[in-house]
Amino acid sequence: MGFKIGRAGILFVYAIIIIVPITVVMLGSFKSMGELFDSPFGLPESWNAQNYLDIIVHHDMGQAFINSAIVTLSSVTLTLLIASCAAYGIARLKGWLSWLIFGFLVLGMAIPPQANMIPQYVQFDRLGLLNSLTGLILIMVVTGLPVATFILGGFMKTLPNEMFEAASVDGVGPVRSYISIAMPLSLPSIAATSIFLFVIQWNELLYPLMFIQSPDKQTIPLRLLNFQGEFLTNYPLLFTGVAIASIPITIIYILLQRYFVEGMTAGAVKG
């Protein structure tokens, strides 16, 4: 009895601690500064989208949104493609060579970006890939490969080998097996991996901060960080930025919650 009441109490309080700040931010994005400070919890006097218009048009948030969409969608797709190929090769090769390749690729999960970001910066500078969306896509693919190979490889290793052997006897080559057997059967794990990559890459700050100088090439998190210096404590504008950054990912979360939990716990090291 006591356990149940205590449990209900704690769960209720923590739910409030999560919901209230998020609600204040969402409502605040429609308020003026005075209104936010006077009544942070109240509904806005009017639902005018002035802050949104302001931040999208006058503060480059629209451009940042487009950049983030381009970078995230490209890098998630490319990472999935390259990592699933590697995972497929590893799963079917078996033996010591397969373990060696898998272990070598997955080792990257244990290496934090600080350990190689400076030489990467120099390298990308020499290749002329700094301050470009292409450079950002490339670095995100590279940093996403270890964890994507880990999740996909772990899954593909559980696919029964007999299936591929039977296909091989019927004259189906490895390439066709990848497209028509391995990939369709791995869909749940591909979904979990893509969602994990999407969250990580949509929210990525370190590499854009290092690589991007031009305002028109900034991604959302970088744009958001730079607001700090520009409007200091204009919270309604900051909140509008937070809302724009969070809305796409929240919608996907509500629709595909199961895959989020799978992907984000499998790859939590990166978060």
Binding site: I18, N203, P221, L225, I249
Partner: peptide, 9 residues
């Protein structure tokens, strides 16, 4: 839910 938000947010 908070886990999926960006750190800057």
């Amino acid at each position: 839910f908070p886990t999926i938000l960006s750190s800057v947010s």
